[in-house]
């Protein structure tokens, strides 16, 4: 009951206003942007945000690193596509089943991998992702080189794929759900246990936290989100091909969370927007893009390890201080008058 009457500090108010403003802008955006490619472009950001949030659960929250998360997108995508193409189960349900299947695969991978030291875990995930790509290429019924067409997403009788405005709002809703769940997770017992494991696994172990259990759980949650993102990506694009799941693409998700800020709710959002924008601006300059992404990672790790969110937080704090000062000034002025 206490929380209902909680008074917010100015900084919290500033943050809330900023988030609300962003949400409103994004909600009315399709009224002004009618170009269907642009809308597809924004819908795709939703995929990236979900996948990057998933990776952030693993990297930011539980302190494990993976350079192979594209593999979970591949499993999610292919499982969902195969299910919907061959069984006729509604696509939305297929996507959820695929996400759970992907989480299962993540768990199976995590059981032996969670005991590995950081660098070796990276290696294992790289190997896993390379292996997955090769596996897809060797399964001929997936038509890996020319790709498979996917079914349309239908939600309550509405064909989402018929207009990219629908997918835009669907992306928005999915992202909102994922972000809320993620912020709940970070406040829950499991989330705090994962953070304890990240900060010091020995002391976490000493406090009675089952280290292996939470590492595996983090892996499963992140595989769930990435699998869902993969399934959504496949149905959004209408097409699935093995080349969208090559190992180097995993780096992009790491880039997003490093740019946005690890272990934050909005880090992946900022990162995904930045990534998609840069990708579009530098579409023809592949080499420059690679250099730029590398440099971004190097700079952010050295100078802004908290990512853009840390920078924005600092700015928000400054703004809040300014507002406080201003209000205090007004108050004294009013007091002086009376």
């Amino acid at each position: 009951m206490l929380t209902r009457f909680k008074t917010y500090t100015t900084q919290e108010k500033v943050t809330r206003c900023a988030i609300l403003a962003l949400a409103v802008v994004l909600l009315v955006l399709p009224l002004f942007v009618t170009n269907s490619y642009r809308l597809y472009f924004f819908s795709m950001i939703g995929v990236y945000i979900i996948a990057a949030s998933g990776l952030d659960v693993l990297v930011g929250m539980s302190g494990q690193m993976s350079f192979g998360h594209i593999a979970f997108l591949a499993y999610g995508g292919y499982i969902s596509v195969l299910l919907s193409n061959y069984t006729g189960i509604p696509v939305i349900i297929c996507m959820i089943i695929a996400a759970f299947a992907s989480a299962g695969i993540g768990m199976v991978i995590a059981v032996p991998c969670a005991k590995l030291r950081a660098q070796f875990l990276v290696l294992a995930t790289i190997a896993f992702s390379f292996f997955t790509y090769q596996l897809i290429c060797n399964l001929h019924f997936l038509n890996p080189y020319r790709g498979l067409y996917t079914e349309h997403m239908v939600l309550f009788g509405l064909d989402l794929n018929s207009d990219y405005r629908y997918t835009y709002y669907f992306s928005f809703a999915l992202v909102a759900i994922v972000l809320v769940l993620k912020s709940l997770l970070s406040k829950s017992k499991a989330g705090r246990a994962m953070m304890a494991v990240r900060d010091n696994s020995r002391s976490a172990d000493g406090m009675g936290i089952n280290v292996r259990h939470y590492k595996v759980l983090a892996f499963a949650i992140s595989a769930f989100l990435c699998g869902f993102a993969g399934a959504y990506m496949a149905h959004l694009t209408g097409f699935i091909v093995s080349d969208s799941f090559v190992q180097p693409l995993s780096f992009n998700f790491v880039l997003m969370i490093i740019f946005g800020g690890t272990n934050t709710v909005f880090g992946p959002v900022i990162g995904a927007f930045m990534y998609q924008l840069l990708n579009e601006l530098l579409a023809s300059a592949q080499a420059w893009r690679s250099v730029l992404y590398g440099v971004i990672v190097l700079i952010f790790i050295a100078f802004l390890p908290g990512g853009c969110v840390a920078g924005l937080r600092r700015a928000g704090r400054g703004l809040a201080k300014l507002i406080d000062k201003n209000q205090a000034g007004k108050e004294t002025a009013r007091n002086d008058k009376s």
């Binding site: 302190g63 690193m65 350079f67 660098q119 790491v254 490093i258 690679s290 992404y293 971004i296 390890p305």
Partner: peptide, 18 residues
Amino acid sequence: GIYMVLVTLGLSKVINGG
């Protein structure tokens, strides 16, 4: 440690692009 791996990965992107 995990970010150190990322530093080397970033370097590899820079070298490859270069």
